[in-house]
Design a protein around this nucleic acid. Structure first.
Lengths: 302, 302
DNA sequence: TTCTGAGATAAGTATAGACTTATTTACCCA
DNA sequence: TGGGTAAATAAGTCTATACTTATCTCAGAA
């Protein structure tokens, strides 16, 4: 059975008007065009759809049955067309964002702002550490990722949008709390609270220390930024964290930043997506939104 | 949005395999053919359906949404195709038969036999008098009609299939019950029970009497054959009826046939349908069935 | 690195799809 | 018996569809 969508459209119009001529008018066609479409449809089905009794046209039983299907099919085509129209706009559809856990401290705000501007967008946010974020990217789960510098081997398209200074924090009553220009060597005796392996912050810290030839001492390994901060507050030792994650604590003087030579380690945050990814207009809009927000923020700080 | 059914088919196959090449194999096509179909579909929709991340192919959100519709549309096409296949056969679908009430005495048996041979056919039977049967034919309600000689003005295609002798019946204790070769004039004093106007039997009777210049006397007008028969049994007078309707009563001697000169009036039954009607294979089969049954019956009686 | 499998691209073709205008046929009604 | 309306038929045109083969590109694995 080789039937055309066009044939279904024409058929439906004829069935509705029970008139070829009327259907032709509606479709801005000539009457023979309609005759032919119906005839082709009938011959490919092998059954008449209409019967002409006297001057009137009636649906045959086959036509009756066909009409039901023609209508549902057309309804689905229209529904699909509308959905596609929505998806073609920037303010609809779904947006799956995965973020490195450290990013959480400002990304949530960002997403909230974006959601407020685009209420019809269905946003899903996925917060994990760098390592599992990369594996999610590999499985093509998120549309976009917010993370530290992406590795070269995963073919990511990325753009940095914000500074990410890593600083050393200590409890306020730490002996070096008020020291100036501390050399890394001065911290040889200190113990460090560190994030779990797989954390981007930890990787960055270790790379920095090893570049500097500084063999840091680990006091404890904790899962997540919060735990680390609390560990430091509790006096378990120092820690290297992203400055953004401790803004509140520094203001409240629950924690202090140590003035260590070579710090802060200047890193950057990136918006990234896998090469080949067909960003939806919404995802693209969010990407720009993030970059713009980063630019705004760095303007403020200069 | 100008999309082809073919495109939906190809799209569905690709979405199922998540591979152009695999889909091409399934559809017995070359791989570029599939590429092009998808590309055309995407360009007419204005959104990508797939994204290629590394070596794997994934559905985009738009593709995901489209797939749902593509599948329902294809399901409906298949369902339609199956229904049409059924209707193309002789043993399915619906069969609407309208019969003149007098025909009821043997048509019900006929329909029962046909239904037994074709259990999947949905039969609807409509019993009315000639007049309302004609108006139903005019409205194209029945597929076929079983009736007396069809009028010429309604453009019916008809074929006679059985004799319909009209006879005069009387109660067994009627004075003329055993008389031979009664002349019509001898019935001048008799009263006749007659069918309602609109009845074919009544029309035939009146035409016959008026052709013979016989002004019959009407004792009572009754609705339907049964009422007429009971009226005659009750001694309300004579009646002209189709012989088929009184077989039982004659055998049981509840009624007798009067041997009137010029009787029986020899009429015939016809299967008829409106010119232009596209008889379904089932309807055509029933038409032949009726004619064959008529032929069998007249062979038996000779 | 090279090889391999998968998809994209290019170029070309046959065909049937979707129309048109002009004309004929058929029914219904006045 | 014509006149009007509606559908069928005929003939022709144009273009997009649905393919093909040949070649190129690219990611991932040996």
């Amino acid at each position: 059975m080789h039937i055309t969508i066009r044939q279904l459209q024409v058929f439906e119009a004829v069935a509705r008007h029970l008139s070829y001529t009327r259907a032709a008018e509606e479709l801005h066609l000539t009457q023979p065009a309609v005759s032919m479409q119906i005839k082709q449809m009938e011959s490919s089905i092998g059954l008449p759809m209409f019967e002409q009794i006297g001057k009137k046209i009636y649906l045959t039983q086959a036509g009756d049955a066909m009409l039901v299907h023609a209508r549902t099919i057309m309804r689905h085509l229209e529904a699909a067309s509308e959905e596609m129209n929505d998806l073609r706009g920037e303010d609809s559809g779904r947006l799956r964002v995965a973020i490195a856990s450290t990013v959480n401290y400002f990304a949530t705000q960002l997403l909230a702002d974006f959601a407020k501007e685009n209420p019809a967008v269905e946003i899903s946010l996925d917060v994990t550490n760098r390592e599992s974020l990369l594996s999610r990217l590999e499985a093509n789960l998120p549309d976009l990722a917010l993370m530290g510098k992406p590795p070269a081997d995963l073919d990511l398209v990325s753009e940095s949008f914000m500074d990410n200074p890593l600083i050393v924090i200590a409890s306020p009553d730490h002996p070096l709390a008020n020291a100036r220009r501390i050399a890394l060597a001065d911290l040889a005796e200190a113990h460090f609270v560190v994030r779990e392996p797989g954390s981007g912050t930890r990787v960055a810290m270790e790379r920095f220390f090893s570049d500097q030839g500084f063999p840091y001492q680990k006091s404890m390994e904790l899962m997540g930024n919060e735990a680390v901060k609390q560990g430091v507050e509790a006096g378990l030792g120092l820690a290297v964290v992203s400055a953004h994650t401790v803004e509140k604590e520094l203001t409240l003087q629950r924690l202090v930043e140590l003035d260590v030579d070579g710090m802060p380690i200047m890193r950057r945050w990136y918006v990234a997506y896998r090469k080949g990814k067909r960003l939806s207009p919404t995802a693209e809009a969010f990407r720009r939104f993030v970059i713009a927000a980063g630019a705004r923020r760095s303007e403020l700080s200069t």
